[in-house]
Amino acid sequence: MTFKLGILEVGRPPENLRNTFGDYPSMFEELLRPRGADWHYMSYPVVDGQLPQTVHDCDGWLITGSKYGVYDDLDWIGPLKTFLKQAYSEHVPIVGICFGHQILAEALGGKAEKSDKGWGCGVFTYYVLQSPNWMPEGLTSFSIEAYHQDQVVRLPEDGDVIASSDFCEFAAIDYKGRALSFQGHPEFSRDYTVALCNERRGDTLPEDIADRAIASNDAPMQISEVAHMIINFIQQAAVREKQEEL
């Protein structure tokens, strides 16, 4: 039976970039499928108030990034936290990216807020603190795109920090092998990040921050390594879930 990954769409790229780069669910499929995740990908427009009926509608869940904050007064934020808390308690694998990283922490008892460190945009390097067996052997750091002002500032009780940086202390979190989250964006290509920064430069994104982010895109990235982390993690968590059901 084909594994079903449900992508919880909590944000969308600017409309004039979607024709070129697609939406966030398609970016994740393009990240994961070519690297061995030949799964059935299902998208749920949570940003429009549409959650799955149950946490078992799919075999695992992935929460996308968003322009919104977990503290925003939006009708779908509370129900999404409840959904994630239930999925976690029932051992359905979860992966969170950026906003997904932050709301997963909040749902499980942590705290996220707008950071006094300001914007983190462009290619950032995160240093590995722990190496679970789903992480590529010998990996000591990884660099991926980032685009955020908010950060997790209090770790949930079940959370273990597996990667960190001076700018982002809780950059990647492992929740007892049942959920995994990253502050950075492995699904963002260089071209998309540059286009996004140019789109928002001088508007929601200060010009100097946009310029630095664009300049950083000459740096090497470990997109494949992070993609394989996500795939390996989901596969291991799904096997563990099935074993616990027996």
Rank of each mutant, 00 (worst) to 15 (best):
D174F: 02
D57Y: 08
K67L: 11
E137R: 15
Q53P: 03
A87F: 07
A171N: 03
P52Q: 05
L155T: 10
Q235V: 12
T82G: 02
K4Y: 06
R212I: 01
P136I: 14
V194L: 12
P132Y: 13
K242S: 15
N217Q: 15
A163G: 00
L104M: 03
E90N: 00
I97P: 01
K67E: 08
G49H: 00
F99M: 10
R190K: 15
V194D: 10
R178I: 03
R35S: 14
V161A: 11
N217R: 13
I77Q: 03
E245W: 10
Q151G: 01
Q236A: 11
R35E: 15
D211Q: 10
E187G: 03
Q236K: 07
T64C: 00
M27R: 13
Q236N: 11
K4D: 14
S66L: 01
A171Y: 09
D73N: 14
P34L: 09
W76A: 01
A163F: 09
V153W: 07
Q151T: 07
D203G: 11
S43W: 05
F99A: 07
G159W: 02
L196N: 00
D38W: 07
H148M: 00
P132K: 09
R12C: 09
R154L: 14
L31N: 02
Y24S: 01
F28S: 00
Y88I: 05
Q130F: 08
P136C: 13
Q243R: 15
L80D: 00
L139V: 12
Q130W: 08
D174H: 05
T54S: 07
A107H: 05
P93I: 12
P186V: 04
N133S: 14
Q183R: 04
D211A: 08
D166C: 07
A227D: 11
F83A: 04
K111N: 12
V161D: 11
K81A: 05
I94G: 03
V153K: 01
N133R: 14
A112E: 06
S141Y: 13
F124W: 14
M1G: 11
G6D: 10
S216W: 14
E245T: 10
R200I: 02
G6W: 07
K176G: 09
F233H: 13
Y126E: 09
V46A: 04
V55M: 02
G78W: 04
P156A: 12
D160R: 12
L8F: 11
H40M: 14
L129F: 07
G109Y: 06
M229F: 13
A215Y: 08
V161R: 00
I63D: 00
C197S: 04
E225C: 12
L104P: 01
P186K: 02
A179P: 05
E106Q: 12
E245G: 12
R240K: 15
C98K: 02
I103T: 09
G122R: 13
P52R: 04
H101I: 05
G65S: 09
E199K: 00
A213L: 02
T54P: 02
Q236C: 09
G120F: 03
A179H: 10
S165I: 07
L74I: 11
G109E: 08
E9D: 08
Y192K: 05
G11K: 11
D203Q: 15
S165D: 01
Q236M: 13
N198P: 04
F3D: 13
I77P: 06
I103K: 04
P156W: 06
Q86H: 06
D208P: 02
Y41I: 06
D208F: 01
A195T: 09
M229I: 15
T64H: 05
A163S: 10
T125M: 01
S143Y: 12
